[in-house]
Amino acid sequence: MTWKWRRPLRCSFGTAYHCLITKGGLGEKETVLIQAAAGGVGLAAIQLARDAGATVIAVAGGSERQARLTELGASHVIDRLEKDVVEEVLRLTGGKGADLVIDPVGSTLQASLSALAPEGRLVFVGNAGVAALMSIFGSRCRTIRRFTACSWDRFSRGQP
């Protein structure tokens, strides 16, 4: 294992590990989508997921970041400014979606949920997604320990 990090990223590895392994249950040969992959937690998550044997799909804005994210271990990099994240994830996974999504942004809730595979897992980092989840689930949000989406598209259209 060779991790490339600078001083400020040290605590990011603990957070990324907690998101990927402890809460996300990432397994070997699974696909993980990392939103905001050019941030501290994202950079650490790419390397840890790679070392865990996962296929890593990283999302960042701006093509200048793509080479760096690939160098750190991302199998695929999506430039959110140029491409639709959900369409690209579905294309890259043969229509299945990501087994795990790490989302430190919050405003990307719809894309994160739509990019999930059936029985996929979504892990928010910190409080990034609380406002978005509250808008959907209201006060029940506080009781959610692990969010599993079987078919977000059907749910969002009001179908069972």
Score class of each variant (00 low, 15 high):
D84R: 00
V85T: 01
W3Q: 06
E87Q: 13
A128D: 02
G61F: 14
A74D: 09
A128F: 06
I144L: 15
A98V: 01
A60Q: 12
C19W: 02
D153S: 15
I136Y: 07
G106T: 00
F155P: 03
R142M: 08
G106W: 02
L109D: 00
P8W: 04
V59W: 06
D84H: 04
V77D: 13
I102S: 05
N127Y: 08
R68L: 13
G53V: 11
A74W: 12
V101K: 00
I34E: 04
V56H: 10
A67C: 05
L26R: 07
A58M: 10
G42H: 02
V123T: 01
P104Y: 05
M1D: 13
R80G: 10
Q110N: 08
K4P: 08
Y17A: 15
N127D: 12
A149V: 02
V123Q: 12
G158S: 12
A98K: 02
N127Q: 14
M134Y: 07
G61P: 08
G120E: 05
S114Y: 04
I21G: 03
F155H: 08
L90N: 01
A67N: 09
T148G: 11
I144V: 12
A54P: 06
M1K: 07
R6E: 15
T31F: 12
G129P: 04
R65A: 06
V105L: 14
L72I: 07
C19R: 00
A36E: 04
S139N: 11
P8A: 03
R121V: 11
M134C: 11
Q159K: 08
V56Y: 04
L109N: 00
A60P: 07
S151K: 03
G158M: 02
L20T: 04
V59F: 14
A117V: 03
G39E: 01
V125E: 05
A54E: 14
V123G: 06
V32N: 14
A16C: 06
I136W: 10
A111S: 11
T15F: 05
G73D: 10
F155K: 10
A67M: 12
D84A: 06
T55S: 13
S156H: 11
G27T: 07
V105S: 01
I21W: 10
K29Q: 14
R91V: 02
L81P: 05
T31A: 13
Q66M: 14
L48T: 09
L33M: 08
R157H: 14
A117P: 00
E28N: 06
P8F: 09
A44D: 01
Q47R: 05
L69Y: 08
S139E: 15
T108M: 15
A16N: 02
W5V: 07
P8H: 04
E119R: 03
R145I: 03
T70K: 10
E119K: 08
H18K: 11
C141Y: 03
S151E: 08
I102Y: 13
R154T: 11
G53L: 13
R142Q: 07
P118L: 13
L72G: 11
G25I: 00
L133A: 06
A128E: 05
M1Y: 12
P118M: 09
G106M: 00
H76L: 13
R146Y: 14
E87A: 15
A44H: 01
A52I: 03
A132G: 11
Q66P: 13
L9H: 12
G106V: 02
L43H: 05
